[in-house]
Write a protein that binds this DNA or RNA. Sequence first.
DNA 1: GCTGAAAACAAATTATG
DNA 2: CATAATTTGTTTTCAGC
Lengths: 150, 150
Amino acid sequence: MDETDKKILQQLQRNSKLTTKALAADLGLSATAVYERIRRLERNGMILGYVARIDPVKVHLDFRVFCQVKLSQHVQHQIRTFEKEVDQLKEVVSCYHLGGEYDYLLEICVRDMAAYREFMVSKLTLIPQIGSTHSAFVINTVKQTHELPL
Amino acid sequence: MDETDKKILQQLQRNSKLTTKALAADLGLSATAVYERIRRLERNGMILGYVARIDPVKVHLDFRVFCQVKLSQHVQHQIRTFEKEVDQLKEVVSCYHLGGEYDYLLEICVRDMAAYREFMVSKLTLIPQIGSTHSAFVINTVKQTHELPL
DNA sequence: GCTGAAAACAAATTATG
DNA sequence: CATAATTTGTTTTCAGC
């Protein structure tokens, strides 16, 4: 991972449709060199894959909620079960085990408040390991990026 | 946006390297039909772009922190200034204005605790609008996806 | 909005220095 | 790591339904 690799990753995490030729011109290298570097970054597992970014507003999935969860008990199999359940809920776009008062922070993405209510009532709170929850609603998204600060 | 478009978006947000041919076979359409649908989804703004996903562990940027921020005052120009400042910090991968006790939730991505300390001391807390902060460290990432639950 | 075919282009491989 | 030639496959355009 030298500076050239870093520049390639920076560009590709912004726009993966860049051609090797365009990247090569930008970096002052040949297309083959850039091609080989990208393949190596893929084989290394540095590049996990390529995905399309979809506008949440345009597809009416722009109601976002952060839900903190406290477990009722903290024995290992309870933790595992909870995590497995959460992983299967497609509305949960991320779930972190945190230090602090609450155990987990869940980021939830739904259509609107009615959908969130439905999600809570008929999905999340059905998980028996949950002790208590606290929901915080997103009023405005100031910044949101997948780009790592390389 | 019919069911076919939805299926195309579902696939592309998982793997944007899928060829129109492969998608067409999956959907029982011709490659051209799929091609035209994708172009329309792009022109519509439903597809914002295509990006590479990078492994945070492999590039040593796997120390994640959620930092809640309370502003000292809430006049409009203070809010705008704060948001503009935060937007320029590359370590901040997301920033949400939330309802509840704290005003903002910042998701921060750095190398390690030392880097986080450095970020707080010489970047975040230099923003004068900040009243107080509370940091919660990620112990374990249970789930993390960019995929919207279409 | 779809199909099938043709043209244009980029990716991927190989050879050579 | 560069250049060049080649093959393979995909993207894009087009005529026609």
